[in-house]
């Protein structure tokens, strides 16, 4: 295929993904906005006002970056895992398999589709947070890079989950039993400085901690870990997951007989 044809194929996948999640906006775009509003009201306002400061900021300001990141992670992952698994389930993945689209274009198209939803949700949640607190961006470039790479990473995770899943239960296991606990324990609601040494050490092997803190550094200028180490970790995970996803596609795992 020519570069122009490859671009058309990529754009077709991406626009189809965007069309899908905007068509069902009440299931995809609205719930995170509602959930995050509740977090802001309950944790930020009601409980946060009694907690006082954390990391030198109001508790509400402290948790906003983590909550935005949590919404981005969940949405990026959910978009790809549900869309790609539905295509497998309905067999319309065959439309792609019989076509000449290379595997890397398929992967890029789906990942960018997941990123589009994740970043869209990130913007929505950020706008909602402005109703509750004042945000100043310490390093806007760091914010943008961290959120883009994080959404790409979790879109890749969702893709791999969808490739390996054989039934609908399989696409909810990872978000429920792995993603959610890691996110809650990734420093969204607290600084790991509050933890005893042992648990602080354990937290350091949680990849989401690096993403939340990288993002928090971009907004507030404070972080539990070096922000450049955060970026390095995210990039490393992206390379590994992309290699795994491409290998699964090459083998046709779960999509070819």
């Amino acid at each position: 295929m020519t570069p122009h044809a490859l671009w058309t194929a990529f754009y077709t996948i991406l626009s189809r993904e965007i069309r899908r999640f905007t068509r069902i906006w009440a299931q995809t775009l609205l719930p995170p906005a509602v959930t995050m509003t509740l977090y802001f009201v309950i944790f930020g306002n009601l409980i946060g006002s009694r907690i006082g400061q954390m990391g030198g900021f109001d508790y509400m300001q402290f948790i906003v970056p983590g909550l935005i990141m949590m919404a981005v992670i969940t949405s990026s992952y959910a978009n790809v895992v549900s869309s790609f698994f539905s295509m497998k389930f309905q067999h319309n993945i065959e439309e792609l398999l019989v076509s000449p689209v290379p595997n890397w274009v398929i992967l890029t198209g789906y990942v960018c589709g997941g990123m589009a939803r994740g970043l869209g949700i990130g913007v929505i949640v950020t706008l909602v947070s402005l109703a509750f607190t004042h945000l100043e961006f310490h390093n806007i470039l760091m914010v943008v890079i961290t959120v883009i790479l994080t959404s790409a990473l979790f879109a890749l995770g969702g893709f791999i989950n969808a490739m390996l899943a054989t039934k609908f239960d399989d696409i909810s296991i990872v978000p429920t039993f792995i993603l959610t606990p890691l996110t809650y324990l990734g420093g969204v609601f607290y600084s790991i400085d509050l933890l005893p040494d042992f648990w602080r050490g354990v937290s350091m092997i949680n990849p989401i901690l690096y993403m939340v803190n990288g993002f928090r550094y971009g907004i507030l200028g404070v972080s539990d870990v070096n922000p450049f180490v955060s970026l390095g970790m995210i990039l490393l995970f992206i390379v590994v997951l992309a290699a795994v996803a491409l290998n699964l596609l090459r083998r046709g795992k779960g999509i070819r007989n």
């Binding site: 122009h4 044809a5 058309t8 194929a9 077709t12 996948i13 439309e95």
Partner: peptide, 14 residues
Amino acid sequence: LDIVTTQAGYYGIP
């Protein structure tokens, strides 16, 4: 129409 044009897109047809 979307089903048919999407398939064309996979073949690189604008």
